[in-house]
């Protein structure tokens, strides 16, 4: 850890167009909250020649529901984790996302850090990523003279590597309206409350006549990127809901991860914990979605 940063050029563009012309993802890096970039510069893991602050760009700090766009949630590139966590729209409409952010315990990190920045770090241990996977979010990326829009699952390419190319910037994350009757759950296992996840899991489910009509399972820290457990989701859509189904889905989920051993856990332990967290998250979310209350007309 170095006390001082190496010198660099500093730019504060006033628009996304100016900013994308400057950033190249290598020698010229975008700065939003700075919690990750400045730390990596102190560690000399990043030594940019130019830092491009996005902080002076107007219209990027929103957290709002678009009534005309089917009630989707729009989160701008400068919206802080704290802003998203505290937004009434989020706590009411997408509580799974607020729950995932709440698992990041440092207030300063949430006050400085942005949700988009958290994704752009590209870490497989992101806590917001599994929640956004489970909620079917999309990522808007501005380039020079154009804009593209990709599923959040296609955003992560490898540890620290995202789909953002040189001269591109993520401008917004869009979370669609939650499926009717759905409920979610985020669970995380970590060494201490303020450490990053050994494993984290987000699920979203809804039921019709005792079977899942909607099921999404996402797992973090257990593969080179956050992953969706598609085989487990398909099993849930096929089988009647019961504790054995949750267990079978959890086992299927554990087959969709490729964990490593590191200072936080062994690969085997991570795979076992994927089973436990997926089973528990599904069981708790199913409870939240009312499957056990017979709301769907069938005993669970």
């Amino acid at each position: 850890m170095h006390r001082a940063l190496l010198p660099f050029e500093f730019s504060e563009p006033a628009s996304v167009e100016e900013a994308v012309a400057l950033v190249d993802g290598g020698r010229a890096r975008a700065l939003a909250g700075g919690v990750d970039l400045v730390l990596k510069m102190r560690l000399r893991q990043e030594t940019p020649e130019r830092v491009v602050s996005l902080q002076k760009i107007a219209g990027l700090d929103h957290v709002r529901v678009d009534a005309h766009g089917g009630g989707a949630l729009h989160i701008g590139a400068l919206a802080t984790l704290r802003q998203v966590e505290q937004s009434a729209a989020v706590t009411q409409g997408w509580p799974l996302l607020a729950e995932a952010i709440a698992s990041i315990v440092s207030m300063q990190t949430k006050v400085m850090g942005t949700l988009v920045g958290n994704l752009c770090v590209g870490t497989p241990a992101s806590d917001v990523a599994p929640a956004l996977f489970a909620l079917g979010a999309r990522v808007k990326i501005a380039g020079v003279g154009d804009e593209r829009d990709i599923a959040v699952e296609d955003f992560f390419l490898g540890p620290g590597v995202t789909a953002v190319r040189p001269h591109e910037l993520v401008t917004e994350v869009v979370v669609p309206a939650r499926p009717v009757g759905s409920a979610g759950r985020f669970l995380k296992l970590s060494k201490t409350a303020d450490d990053i996840a050994k494993v984290n899991v987000a699920v979203s489910v809804a039921f019709s006549r005792g079977t899942c009509a909607h099921a999404r399972i996402a797992i973090g820290s257990a593969a080179p990127t956050p992953v969706r457990a598609v085989a487990a989701e398909e099993l849930l859509l096929r089988e009647d809901w019961c504790p054995a189904t949750a267990k079978a889905a959890a086992e299927a989920a554990a087959r969709s991860v490729r964990p490593i051993s590191d200072v936080r856990s062994t690969a085997d332990y991570r795979a076992e914990m994927v089973k436990v967290l997926v089973r528990d998250a599904l069981t708790q979310a199913a409870d939240g979605a009312g499957v056990l209350d017979g709301h769907d007309g069938k005993e669970a």
């Binding site: 500093f10 700065l31 700075g34 919690v35 400045v38 730390l39 102190r42 830092v51 602050s53 902080q55 704290r82 207030m107 300063q108 990190t109 006050v111 400085m112």
Partner: peptide, 18 residues
């Protein structure tokens, strides 16, 4: 920790220019 516009931030990870 210092307060920047009333909110707690890490002064060690904040570029002074910002």
């Amino acid at each position: 920790t210092v307060l920047l516009e009333g909110k707690p931030v890490f002064a060690c990870l904040t570029l002074a220019v910002t």
